[in-house]
Nucleic acid binder design. Structure first.
Lengths: 209, 209
DNA sequence: CATTGTTTGTAACTAATGTTACAGAGTGTG
DNA sequence: CACACTCTGTAACATTAGTTACAAACAATG
C-alpha cells in the first residue's frame, strides 16, 4: 500500500522530501464496494488520493436526483474536496466506492503550505483541477448533445474503461440513477443494445461485446 | 481603462509590483457586442481579464450545436484559456462579447512565473478556477434537473443579473442556441412565460417583470 | 422447498421536446 | 412605398423520454 503511494506520487513528479511528509501526516482508508465516502452537506477535512480501486463522484439536487460527474481512478484526487476546504464550503456532491478501494487521506491544513512550497505539488493540484474540468465538460457534452441511447452506451464504454473489465456488475436501477433517468427506460434501451449485439444481459451483469 | 484594471487587480489582492508588471506586458482589447473573441480550434496565446462588459463562454460539438457554459463579468478571467495554454491544448469552446467589452490581454508566457512568485496571483488563478468549476456544476444542474421551461426562465434571470438590466435584447433564435434547443420551442415557452406575466415580449427584446 | 425480496421484461399510456410548415408583423433600404 | 429580410406566433405532427402496472425470473434465507 505504501509502495503504491510512493510510486503514484513519484510518477506525478512529487519530490522525495514531500513524499515522505505525505506519508507521515496522511493515513490509509479502505472502502468496500458501494461504501459512501463523502456525503453531501458534510465538510471535507481530508483530501483523498486513490491508491487502488475506483470512486464515483455524483451530483445531487434537493430531491435526491443524481447524476454521475466522473470517476476517480488510481493516482487521481478529488479536486472538489480541496476547493471545498479552501473556500470553507459544504460539499454538494457525494463520493462512493465503485469497487473495493484504498485511499490515502491527507489532512487539509497542509495543503496551503505545500502548494506554496512545492512546485511539483502545485503542478499536481493544478493538473488535477484541469483533468476534472475537462471531465465536467465531457459530461456536459454527453447530457447536452447525446440522446439517451448514445449516452447509455457511452456510459457502459466509460465504465468498461474505468474498471478495465468488459463485465459491468450493476443493476439497471443503479445505472438509471447515474444517468438521472428511470429503471424502465434503462431496461428498454439496454434490451435494444442487446438486440443490436453490442452487449449481453444477465442479472446484475452486463457484458460489453 | 487603466484605472479600471488597477482597481480590479488590487481588489483581487494583487500586489502593486505585479499590477505594474501586468500593466507593462499586457495590452487592452475592445470587442463590439456580438464579436467573436476566442474560436474553437484555436490556441490561446493570451489570458483575457474582463475590464468592462460581458463575455459568454459556449461549448460546441462537431455539428456546431452549442450550449452556454457561463458568463464572464468584469474582473473575471477565462480559466480555460489558461489551462489550454499550460497543457498546450486546443480551445474547444468559443468566447463571444455579449455587450461592448474591454479586455486586458496578458501574454501566456508570464503565467508560470507569476504563479510561482506571487502568492496573490496564485490565489487569483485558483479562485478563478474554482468559480468556473462551480458555474459548470450549476450548468450541469440546470440541464439535468430542470425542464426546459424552468431552464429558460432561469436563463433569463441569470442574464438579467449578468447585464444588470431587466431588458434582454436578443432574438428567440439566439436564446435557443444558448440552450441547445430550437427557436420554435423557445417562442412557445416564452409565450407561456408572458401569459403567466413573468415577462413581456417585443421584437428583439424581453422584459423581465 | 417455501417464502420473500430483488431484478428484469414488456405493454400501454402520458408528457415533454423537437420538427415542419406557413402566415403575418416589424425593420431597413433604395 | 415596394421590396427583401428578419423575427415571431401558431398549428399539426413526430420522436423521445418518463410513468404506471404487472408478470416472470432469479437469489437468498430460514
Amino acid at each position: 500500500m505504501q509502495e503504491n503511494l510512493i510510486s503514484i506520487l513519484s510518477e506525478a513528479g512529487i519530490e522525495d522530501e514531500l513524499i515522505q511528509e505525505i506519508q507521515k501526516v496522511g493515513f490509509p482508508k479502505t472502502a468496500r464496494s458501494g461504501e459512501l465516502i463523502i456525503t453531501p452537506g458534510s465538510t471535507s477535512m481530508h483530501m483523498p488520493i486513490v491508491l487502488e480501486g475506483l470512486l464515483s463522484v455524483v451530483r445531487q439536487d434537493e430531491d435526491a436526483n443524481e447524476i454521475l460527474l466522473y470517476y476517480l481512478e488510481g493516482g487521481e484526487t478529488c479536486a472538489m474536496s480541496l476547493a471545498c476546504c479552501i473556500e470553507g464550503k459544504r460539499n454538494d456532491f457525494k463520493v462512493t466506492a465503485e469497487d473495493d478501494s484504498v485511499l490515502w487521506m491527507i489532512p487539509m491544513n497542509y495543503m496551503d503550505e505545500w502548494i506554496q512550497n512545492y512546485r511539483s505539488f502545485r503542478k499536481y493540484v493544478f493538473s488535477s483541477y484541469q483533468t476534472r474540468f475537462d471531465e465536467l465538460l465531457e459530461t456536459i457534452d454527453s447530457i447536452t448533445f447525446l440522446n439517451l441511447y448514445d449516452r447509455l452506451y457511452k456510459y457502459l464504454l466509460d465504465k468498461k474503461q474505468a474498471t478495465k473489465s468488459y463485465e459491468i456488475k450493476m443493476s439497471h436501477e443503479q445505472i438509471a440513477q447515474h444517468l438521472n433517468t428511470s429503471r424502465v427506460v434503462v431496461s428498454r434501451l439496454l434490451k435494444q443494445l442487446e438486440n443490436e449485439e453490442k452487449i449481453e444481459l444477465e442479472r446484475n451483469r452486463i457484458s460489453i461485446l
